[in-house]
Write a protein that binds this DNA or RNA. Structure first.
Length: 195
DNA sequence: TCAATGATTAGC
DNA sequence: CTAATCATTGAT
């Protein structure tokens, strides 16, 4: 059986945990006793206390309280009035630190890009704010298991998406060439336009 | 109380 | 590139 990542695994800075989550397995259980849905994490972003783009940059509020929680706390917020985004709190309790899960590879059958984006993956996995504040461990709606290590996997590090502040921090990571990545960075030496 | 603003997405 | 759409936030 796959090893469940212990909560202590998340007790590191977000910019360390974010790339380490690539290739791990996000497990969703819709109800106790129900079968689980396992998906590969293929894209993440890091947010830290000193980061102006972080929701907890200014202060702790009712909305962002979960990202100040103990490592492994689930932080879900709604954006643009129609989508949800899934994060896992990292570092230590009291620190506004979290990793945004941006894309998943769903198990067989599902379309390659059905979970290619933070809003889309929450729709597919039925993640909303009812999960906010839960803990990522077995018996809860969501947890993470160790994925099988792929020695050939290349990780790409680049800038984050959709921000108005902190644009320059290279805190987005994804598995190179994976079809579920939401927005692959431009490849050097390749023209944007087909010809 | 009120206006501004998104850690997005789908559709021109 | 732009509209859709609404809870949260910071300023009156």
């Amino acid at each position: 059986m796959a090893a469940v990542l212990p909560l202590a695994w998340f007790a590191r800075p977000a910019e360390v945990v974010a790339p380490a989550l690539l290739g791990q397995v996000l497990v969703r259980q819709f109800a106790e006793g129900q079968p689980v849905l396992r998906s590969l994490i293929v894209e993440t972003e890091a947010y830290t206390p000193e980061d102006p783009a972080c929701h907890g940059y200014r202060r702790k509020t009712a909305r962002n309280a979960a990202m100040f929680g103990p490592p492994g706390t689930v932080y879900v917020y709604q954006i643009y009035g129609r989508y949800h985004c899934l994060n896992l709190a990292t570092d230590r309790e009291g620190a506004a630190s979290a990793v945004l899960i941006r894309a998943l590879a769903l198990p067989g059958g599902a379309g390659d890009r059905d979970a290619a984006g933070p809003g889309k993956l929450c729709q597919v996995l039925q993640i909303d704010r009812s999960l906010n504040g839960s803990i990522a461990c077995v018996g809860q709606p969501l947890w993470v298991e160790a994925g099988s290590h792929d020695p050939g996997a290349t990780i790409v590090q680049t800038t984050r998406i959709g921000l108005s502040q902190g644009r320059d921090l290279p805190w987005r990571w994804y598995l190179a060439g994976h079809p579920a990545v939401s927005r692959p960075a431009p490849v050097a030496g390749q023209t944007q336009k087909a010809r």
